[in-house]
Amino acid sequence: MAESFLQIRGLKKHFGTKRVLDGIDLEIARASVTTLIGKSGIGKSVFLKCIANLMTPDAGEVLLDGVAIGNNRRGADQSDGFTFSYMFQNNALFDSLTAHENVALPLREAVGMAAEAVDQRVEEILKQLDLGGAGSRYPAELSGGMQKRVALARALVTNPEVVLFDEPTTGLDPERKFGVFDMIADYRERFGFTALLVSHDIPEVFEISDKVAWLDEGKIRFFGDPSELAADSPRSWSGLLQSTEEVETNKF
């Protein structure tokens, strides 16, 4: 695939004797939404963390536009615009900072933009995400959906090329889930980032997915259009559905 933007080649990661990722190859097109599915505990978060450099893989490489990206994911000369952003399952917002300060954090601390430019940019993105009046409030004072949007604002404020979403909808009620999916699809259109997201919400998430990658036993078991997945292996797919549901109900 010539147009592939984010390439993962032969990615391996083990913990002790447990091989979590056992040679993952994946090609992701620019500005597409790819959904990663798989049983709980199979290594989806580990995979995202290896891509985002939060974990060092044992082997394999990640290429962006055909260029391998090393430890420094942010080009030294790039004063603006990050390659990767990560949206964590529980938002990972700082409780002691207001929504505005949370979103401003990467610009202030890592990019080192002037205070006025930061404020302007943050206000702009908060407004775009319908968080206009929420800037001065602390995360604990915001609803779950608003917290998610603040986390999304923080992920997007640096103009990332790739956004990794780890279970952005887990723990939300069905209505909010669709809200988050719409939000991702909508902002992907607006900001043009490439998205890789982990979700258990099968088949709802397929609506916004261009591609689905199914991770099982350390390998990508299926990669293709969501519609093909059902046709490809209906039995194992329903088995997967069950297993994720089991895990979800077991959690409580």
Binding site: R73, S85, Y86, Q89, E109, A110
Partner: peptide
């Protein structure tokens, strides 16, 4: 708590050295 809540990871993805910060 910040470690558990992935806030430390979050800093790292923002290009902020969590230890120094």
């Amino acid at each position: 708590f910040q470690r558990n809540d992935e806030q430390i990871d979050a800093l790292q993805t923002m290009g902020i050295d969590a230890k120094s910060f």
